[in-house]
Design a binder for these strands. Structure first.
Lengths: 257, 257
DNA sequence: TCTAAATGCGAGCACCGCTCTTGTTTTGGT
DNA sequence: ACCAAAACAAGAGCGGTGCTCGCATTTAGA
């Protein structure tokens, strides 16, 4: 109806006439396409709001449509199911985290390897604290039946890729002096899938170490966000951050840097 | 009705007459009390089945009552809400994990500190692999509105307590040789809540180190169970376990043992 | 024995994800 | 410029959920 349509357009950027926005050939942004974009964005925004406020389990498509003033059935023109909506949100969360970490890491001088490592750890924690529910959307309880679609894996690996890059550069520096002992055959086999993404100059032990540190980082963050540090570490940001910095030092030491 | 009652009693241990089972004073097990126990246990069993099969989010009280042949409203005589049922299951899971880890640790000679540490790590992982959904019930995404009741905290600390015990004994051994440098004031303050449960002979750094290692352990397990090691570590038990053992070695080294 | 508490049941409420039908709007080819 | 086809919005409806309430029955304790 005209009513709901008006609501929808109100929610969004000025419904300027679509004709002055280049009616060029190719995909000349039609009214349909523009509306679709706007409404899709509105749905995602509302969904993000809901998740930020009360977590992924409370995400309700009916609540979204209610807020947007549309019929509950209309949303299925944009997302075939609640799971597809969640998938999109998951991808966005991965990208949001990835972008935040990449931005923080890029601000550190290239030659400062430990500084870059620190930046990765800190910005990951920072993002997690600022987006708790989105963090658990990604690193929390896996959804029973849910199988991660293909298009989630690329965004999912952004921060891991960054970590590997730093690890590789660190290995390159340290490879100049002395060869390292070979890892046990079983560990080598275990690492074989990861090996294909990591140059040979990184030893098996360095790879395993890096991965272990990586999971320790997320363990630390999950502990803090999950309340496992309640009555253990003082609940002020200064204390929490001091403990986190202590952990970073430990990880750097464990990496042999 | 007699029908559903029959079903219920069938599900459970023989409904032997309650009179021969000491009609003594005090809480002379009445028919009511016995049935209540039986039905409560049946509900919990069915709930555990559901969780083990498809996770906590899929836990449905109606499905439980259906399976037990009772009216959906009847379950509220036993658990006032779905959340209370979940709370009970959470407590049970904590206890189950705690008991498993305590049993494994107790089998190692007292003087073998690293062996006891290893036993804690391994049995925790083992339990998590065997009870994936229960693990995430405990260490997964925190429920938005959920506030852990008082009676969960004791079971929740069983494995942590065990870990602290080993840490303390290790500190006692190493305290004989040399004092350790004081930790920064901020870290000391951060650790103050934990300090009240840990004797003074454990230094701040040792405490923080132990805690960090503890969270790393759960980070590692969550990574494995959460699928974060997919395409990273080979998905066979031998490979997974080899990588886990490598991590244990790293943690022991980080603890300075 | 007799009252009060505990228990079971069914109807019902408000919500959920999702489907199907109907009627309207927009698009694109002729 | 017209018209069939596609996209879309709305509403009713289905089966599911957690939970409440009133009523009948059973048990406990005085």
């Amino acid at each position: 109806m005209a009513v709901s349509r008006a609501v929808l357009t109100n929610v969004y950027a000025a419904p300027d006439s679509c004709q002055d926005v280049r009616v060029a050939k190719e995909k000349a942004a039609s009214i349909r396409a523009l509306n679709r974009e706007r409404i899709t964005a509105a749905i995602l925004d509302a969904a993000r709001d809901q998740i930020a406020h009360s977590g992924a389990s409370a995400l309700s498509v009916r609540a979204i449509t209610r807020e947007l003033g549309m019929a509950s059935s209309a949303i299925y023109r944009y997302f075939p199911s609640r799971d597809d909506l969640l998938t999109k949100l998951i991808i966005d969360s991965y990208d949001s985290l990835g972008a935040a970490v990449e931005a923080a890491e890029s601000r550190v001088p290239r030659e400062d390897l430990t500084g870059r490592f620190r930046a990765i750890c800190r910005s990951t924690r920072r993002w997690a604290l600022d987006n708790q529910h989105e963090y658990f959307l990604i690193y929390g309880t896996p959804v029973p039946g849910y199988k991660a679609p293909q298009d989630t894996i690329a965004p999912a690996t952004r921060v891991a890729t960054l970590m590997i890059t730093v690890l590789v550069e660190a290995a390159a520096v340290r490879a100049t002096n002395g060869r390292q002992p070979a890892a046990p055959a079983e560990l080598r086999r275990a690492l074989s899938p990861m090996r294909s993404s990591v140059p040979d100059l990184v030893s098996d032990a360095e790879m395993a170490n890096g991965l272990s540190t990586f999971s320790a980082l997320f363990g630390a963050i999950s502990f803090e966000l999950g309340g496992q540090l309640h009555n253990v570490i003082r609940e002020t940001e200064t204390s929490r951050s001091a403990y986190f910095e202590f952990q970073i030092d430990g990880w750097i030491a464990a990496l042999g840097w």
